[in-house]
Amino acid sequence: MDALLLQILNGLDKGSAYALIALGLTLIFGTLGVVNFAHGALFMIGAFCSVTLNKILNLSTVTLDATQKDFLGNPLKVKTPYVESWFGEAAGQSIIDWSVPLAIIFAIPVMLAIGVIMERGLIKHFYKRPHADQILVTFGLAIVLQEVVKAFFGANPIQTPAPDALDGVMDLGGAIGLQLSYPVWRITYFFFAMAVIGGVFAFLRFTTFGMVVRAGMADRETVGLLGINIDKKFTIMFGIAAAVAGLAGVMYTPINPPNYHWGMDFLVLSFVVVVVGGMGSLPGAVLAGFLLGILESFASTTWATTTIPGINQIIIYLVAIIILLVRPRGLMGRAGVMEE
């Protein structure tokens, strides 16, 4: 029973990341009609915003300490981070400790800017082109972004720890008499993801801008007939979708050390999520994200992999194939989308 709950929790975590990425993908597809294969790379860049902020905060003055030696026998260079010199050691260490949550503030404008630049610079030239062209160009962009990150940060995953206060395990099962410890940060991530998802939905439902976007997603032509230039609004939506993917990445870094390949790792699954949930359906994307995350988690258990070897690698695609055969519009998609 505890093993079961543990796998469900695991699945909700991974599923949160999928849901956020799929949300952004669906926003882009629903508004701009673009299949954006660079979206996974946006998730990866968000994660590297975390890494970058960590590096920036760790920028140090270097003093030579003759009492200690480095590997070549020369006096050891002792690094003191600037934030420590400015704010005192305790405060400085604290700031560095909280670099991942602080990266949220850093990442939002960075991701918005990257999203808008991507859209205005490259993607907008492909609106009218067939989806295959869009896939090729965004995929190419994803590879370029990935190689740039690899050139700067190396190929190995980079540790980005959670703040000490949120870094332990929590006993969840005590109240119900189960032995269930779960990492605090993973729980934090889940709630963070829900907050972001909630924020996006609230934005769409309760703001005028959101209403215009919803209208544009439903009937782009008619919105134009009412005098509204939907393209500008959609550019901003691209930026927002990029920011959502980026935030998902920022906060995911303590769970799994980020590396340049995250984009591709998460991209394929996120597209499957979007297809299963229904292209163009935002609630569908979120729901499917969590479902597939849990499904993947269960398929990775020893029980599953011994019963059907390799199930964990193909389960997601199996589900996608079944959905496409049985109900092409996805779980919550509008009838007619993707059904030709």
Partner: peptide, 10 residues
């Protein structure tokens, strides 16, 4: 909302 949509732009 349909009517409000029409009144966003002059």
């Amino acid at each position: 909302e349909n009517i409000q949509l029409a009144q966003i732009e002059k």
